[in-house]
């Protein structure tokens, strides 16, 4: 009780000190940051494992090579942009392309600065398990999907074939695609990536056919080999109107973004994060250890760091 009263008294005192004048809540760090006088960097972790691998390795190096404390905050993609702009997060290490947010925060408000390429190219697409594609090679063309609709049926999709989508936070045009390409499919949202992965693993265990929205690079390919279904080719601007999309998803070089203040005054940590750049294989190695071998992100990062000294040495300021 005593400590609580002290804390309350302390906070009241601070409140009265800061109480006059304007308070800009867009410049606020996490209350847990810098506890115990350590220099802290706050990184946003997205829910997919690739992003966790980025953060785990960055965290390990920041901690052990540069002496920072790292806080991880898990937020969905769009709110993460907002948090980055407000300085509650210092950096996003893997962004899959949010033109609207880029316009608002990078170009108009200038509260976020681009941090360069991550070195990994992301691609979203529709996938069927390779065991099914081998038996029915023509399924990999979207024009033949209707022929197979009955095989992709589930209780959730009713009379139509099921196209499984993941987390609502992911970039997707699937509903429009199904509609515009005239496919006899129903988009069923797993609701989270965790749920989607569990479901894919279940299907694979029984060698059942399924059609799913998925993306590369992703560690699950190592466990459940999947083949992409060809959609009408992507052309610049063909996805401009989300209602009328009739083409595949682009290949996106994934980007890093830093809070503008942090980029300028973040010292070594900011320089390090700008330099951070690795390959798909590197990312997959760590991601697979985390998600499939159930290693903790810290252990997986440590393992990678031990084996790839030359890669990360170049990132250090």
């Amino acid at each position: 009780m005593r400590r609580r009263t002290t804390a309350l008294a302390g906070s009241l005192l601070l409140l009265t000190v800061t109480g006059c004048g304007a308070a800009d809540m867009t410049k606020q760090a996490s209350p847990y940051a810098n506890a115990g006088g350590a220099k802290t960097v706050t990184l946003s972790v997205q829910s997919w494992v690739g992003a966790q691998a980025d953060v785990a390795v960055a965290e390990y190096l920041l901690k052990h090579e540069l002496g920072y404390r790292v806080d991880r905050v898990q937020i969905d993609e769009v709110p993460a942009w907002d948090a980055l702009s407000q300085g509650r997060v210092d950096a996003i290490l893997e962004d899959w392309g949010h033109p609207e947010q880029e316009q608002r925060y990078v170009k108009d408000k200038k509260t976020i600065t681009p941090g360069g390429d991550l070195g990994v190219t992301g691609h979203i697409g529709w996938f069927v398990p390779t065991y099914f594609a081998k038996k029915h090679p023509d399924v990999t063309d979207w024009k033949n999907l209707n022929k197979y609709a009955s095989q992709f049926r589930t209780a959730e999709s009713g009379g139509q074939g099921q196209l499984m989508d993941g987390s609502p936070s992911y970039v997707t045009n699937d509903k429009a695609l199904v509609q515009n390409l005239g496919l006899d499919y129903k988009v069923v949202f797993a609701g989270s990536e965790a749920a989607q992965i569990t479901q894919i693993e279940q299907f694979a265990k029984e060698n059942k056919p399924f059609l799913t929205y998925w993306y590369k690079p992703q560690w699950l390919f190592e466990k459940v080999p999947m083949t992409e279904v060809k959609l009408p080719a992507y052309k610049e601007g063909c996805d401009a109107d989300p209602e009328k999309v009739k083409c595949a998803y682009p290949h996106t070089p994934l980007q890093k973004y830093l809070n503008a203040d942090f980029a300028e005054n973040g010292g070594k940590a900011a320089t390090f994060l700008k330099n951070f750049k690795w390959s798909e294989d590197d990312q997959n190695e760590v991601a697979l250890d985390i998600a499939d071998k159930k290693m903790s992100p810290q252990d997986a990062a440590e393992k990678w760091v031990k084996n790839h000294r030359s890669t990360w040495q170049a990132w250090l300021p």
Binding site: R4, G10, S11, L15, T18, A23, M25, Q28, A35
Partner: peptide
């Protein structure tokens, strides 16, 4: 902003 600050400061203090 003050509400938000007060919360951050109190949580931090505790």
């Amino acid at each position: 902003g003050h509400v938000s600050n007060a919360i951050v400061i109190s949580v931090r203090a505790v």
